[in-house]
Amino acid sequence: MNELIKKLTEAYGPAGFEDQVRDLIQPEVAPYADEIKVDALGNLIVHKKGDGSGLKVMIAAHMDEIGVMVTHITKEGYVRFTNIGGVYPRTLHGNRVRFADGTIGIISTEPLADRNKVNSLDKHFIDVGATSSEDCPVKVGDAAGFWREFAVLGSRLVAKSMDDRIGCVVAIEALKRLKETPHDVYFVFSVQEEVGTRGAQTAANALNPDVGIALDVTLTGDTPEARPMAVSLGKGTAIKVKDTGMIAHAGLVKLMRQRAEEAGIPYQMEVLEGGTTDARPMQIANAGCAAGCISIPCRYVHSQSEMVDGNDVENSVRLLVEILSKPIAL
């Protein structure tokens, strides 16, 4: 699985510019799909048919990542930019971004009298090696994602955009392992989650599922002086009960737990106090659906080095397969 994780996390795909990621996922899923389509917003929708006895289930993992967009290029060739999604200024200085064509840029910042403080986003700039606005290889409106190589540290895996390529990997792996299912399952590799869970919203409107399950990263409480949270890296997949955007369907939460216990899959119950996932728009689409989320615990979310544990990833895949291969009674 690490090879696939490396391939997807190193791909370029800021929100709104997901095509390179989609092109990598498509050949992975094609042999296992009954039907594949790309909708108007760019969601990749992969249908695996059921035997007709089950429900319509939508699985959502978002392809997009946070990034930056060029707003202005100075005479000297420096690039000013704005954020795409939740970019924290403290993660920027000295880091690198990569544009769609592979152009690499270095982020730096205006001098600050107090070195312990962090400049706001608008006081940062990107240096792409240009000497003037004329020879600058990027233009206003170009988007870039962070650039950092995938690394394996024992069972821990580190990369930019684990949020949410790891969710995409869980979806792809589950699809590969899912031999038979009673359910009509739609794996949606969604766009624009980081700018307001927008892709999953239109996909849910179109598919009108009975059950919606998002696959996304969640925070942990296991780093020094972290905000208390009962989720740790390596202690299992996380079953979401609540985040700041939605409260999961109580019956679906119960079913997820039951499936994990039956199959002996390590799991943690998750109450997230910052952020939300594609489960939020799925829950309220049309007449609503039973929505929930299988989360992959992740440290340092929205930095260039997001860390997950390979065992948690494996357990997330196992739980999803357990849920999809058996009847769902809510």
Partner: peptide
Amino acid sequence: AQEETRLLGAYTSAFS
């Protein structure tokens, strides 16, 4: 249901 968090039941029941 869930008015206090996101007006969920209003949107969905009016749709259905």
